[in-house]
């Protein structure tokens, strides 16, 4: 679905041209001057001359590569290219979400021009807690209003705005799809991260959906990689016919690991991230992270160009994608219904 992609590119052409070139021109000149000054003290000069983005990342560079690429694309559409007219100060939490508040505080102390908090509600909340004055651009799957990150979608208020991928919103849809795949199952397992800020609302929605669908839920908790195996083991043990992952960045970034475990345990599972079926998992349903990270990049660029975060409404991604892996289905010994296949945005054969 190319609509979301092209929207971002044309968006800034139409809207931000006016101010953009002027500013970039000035920045270029400043960068050039800084380059001259950098002869003696390069690091200092670079810092003071070109804007700096503080990039607060919950994971390691390897796991975040695809998201970071999308972010860079978004920045590039506004005219910012890392190393040329913008510097990015990365803080990697390496999957230890408890470190996020400290890293966020660190970025605030380093006086960056804008803090980008991608990859989920915990990151946004850590950044928001760290500063009330520095501008923050978030990227998350949850509902920023419900999480108290912003006042409303159209008027975020304060120093924060960003993009929501709707992944949390569609958790019940994953249960529905798993139910469609296993229509006769009386019991389905749900994996949740107890440390996630959205865990309770997701489980609540899932339970009411299960009631409508007429299935029982076996909720399994995992908050670290060590616990993953136990989850899959429990699915088999509890005779649940399928496993539905709640939306959680920790799970999403470990799609490869989860896909391998699903294959090993022969568990049909659905997650939020397309990385899961592409790594051999069965299927995924969730917001398009390429679109959401790209838009986060655009917002970061627009803020560097002087726009106020309160004037930038929170954007919801327009694309929620269904990816199915026919090979995985075959190895699990069943077939997708024609309606699922026809509704899939991408089919891996």
């Amino acid at each position: 679905m190319p609509i979301g992609e092209s929207m971002t590119s044309a968006e800034l052409n139409a809207v931000t041209c006016g101010g953009k070139f002027g500013r970039i021109g000035r920045r270029d000149v400043l960068a050039l001057l800084a380059g001259a000054a950098a002869w003696t003290s390069p690091s200092h000069a670079q810092r003071s001359a070109i804007p700096v983005i503080g990039y607060l990342c919950p994971e390691s560079p390897g796991l975040f590569a695809s998201r970071l690429k999308a972010f860079h694309e978004g920045l590039g559409e506004i005219g910012f290219i890392e190393g040329r007219n913008v510097a990015i100060d990365y803080q990697w939490a390496e999957g230890q979400y408890k470190r996020l508040p400290a890293l966020a505080a660190d970025l605030v102390a380093r006086n960056v021009d804008v803090i980008v908090a991608p990859g989920g509600a915990p990151v946004a909340l850590a950044a928001k807690a760290a500063t009330a004055s520095r501008t923050i651009v978030f990227e998350m799957g949850g509902d920023p209003v419900q999480l108290g990150v912003v006042d409303s979608l159209s008027r975020p208020g304060g120093n924060i705005t960003g993009v929501s991928s709707l992944s949390v919103e569609v958790s019940p849809k994953r249960l529905e799809m798993m139910h469609e795949l296993r229509p006769t199952a009386a019991k389905l397992a749900v994996a949740a991260n107890p440390t996630s800020p959205t865990v309770n609302t997701q489980l609540e929605k899932l339970r009411s959906a299960a009631e409508i669908l007429g299935v029982r839920l076996e909720v399994l908790m995992a908050s670290s990689e060590k616990e993953f195996e136990a989850v899959f083991a429990a699915v088999t043990k509890e005779a649940a016919r399928g496993l539905v992952f709640t939306s959680d960045p920790y799970f999403a970034f470990r799609s490869g690991q989860l896909a391998a475990l699903a294959q090993r345990y022969g568990v049909p599972a659905i997650t939020q991230s397309r990385d899961f079926p592409t790594s051999g998992g069965l299927m995924s349903y969730g917001g398009d992270f390429v679109q959401s990270h790209r838009r986060a990049g655009i917002y970061a660029g627009r803020i560097l160009n002087g726009e106020k975060p309160s004037d930038l409404p929170v954007q919801l991604v327009t694309k929620v994608e269904l990816i199915i892996n026919l090979k995985a289905a075959k190895s699990l010994g069943f077939e997708f219904s024609p309606s699922l296949v026809s509704g899939a945005d991408e089919v891996i054969e």
Binding site: M7, A10, E11, N13, A14, V15, L153, S154, R155, D311, L312, P313, V314, Q315
Partner: peptide, 12 residues
């Protein structure tokens, strides 16, 4: 509107 930010506040 080409600026989606305005559209998202169109109700105002």
């Amino acid at each position: 509107h080409p600026d989606i930010s305005l559209v998202l506040r169109g109700a105002e």
